[in-house]
Design a protein around this nucleic acid. Structure first.
Length: 187
DNA sequence: GAGGCGATTGGCT
DNA sequence: GCCAATCGCCTCG
């Protein structure tokens, strides 16, 4: 289990260290292979314009979940870090509870279960009910990465502001990324 | 109180 | 590759 201090750091640092970390929700999950960092002074961040009802969790203590609805349809999971920064979990490699994930997703292709922020929330059963919950208590379970994963770095996906900032981190060569990483490391 | 928009996804051309 | 779906949140009047 990751210590509380793990999240009490700037989100780009935490994001880098999250690659390879095990993420389980009620025993269903896998290894994190893709994340993005968002910071307080970052125009692309939900916290950029100050506290609101939606982003309240981002202004709370580090080490909690920040869950928001995207495009009125999907849920997206973030880990809150220091100074109202957060890490968006974009993709995991599904390892535990594949049958449950397939049922929730309505498809069984492993690459379509958890590759994308909306998909992984659906597969893991994450909703608004998880917003603000501590990450070191059930239903969450986080396990430290084994060894030193090969990292790839690139610009964040799907945003219009600060689109050039290289705060997307991925496991190099993973088949479970939501989209390929740039060939050359950046940043 | 109304209007516009988004850290996405899936289906169709 | 393009585009609709869908709605809570935020901004402005």
């Amino acid at each position: 289990m990751l210590s509380a201090a793990f999240f009490a750091r700037a989100s780009p640092i935490v994001a880098r260290d999250l690659i390879g970390v095990g993420l389980l929700v009620d025993g269903v999950g896998g290894a994190i292979v893709e994340v993005e960092a968002y910071a307080l002074d970052d125009p692309a961040s939900h916290s950029f314009n100050g506290p609101t009802p939606r982003n309240a969790a981002m202004f709370g203590p580090p080490g909690r979940a920040y869950v928001y609805r995207s495009y009125g349809v999907h849920w997206c999971l973030n880990f809150v870090c220091s100074e109202a920064s957060a890490v968006l979990i974009r993709a995991i490699e599904p390892l535990y509870g594949l049958d449950v994930m397939a049922e929730r997703r309505g498809r069984s292709d492993p690459r379509l279960l958890c590759s994308g922020p909306g998909r992984l929330c659906q597969a893991l059963g994450i909703t608004r009910a998880h917003d603000g919950l501590p990450l070191d208590q059930p239903p969450f379970e986080l396990e430290a990465a084994e060894g030193a994963p090969a990292l790839a770095v690139g610009p964040r996906i799907g945003i219009t502001k600060a689109a050039e900032v290289p705060w997307r981190f991925g496991l190099a060569g993973s088949r479970f990324l939501s989209r390929p990483m740039p060939n050359r490391p950046m940043g």
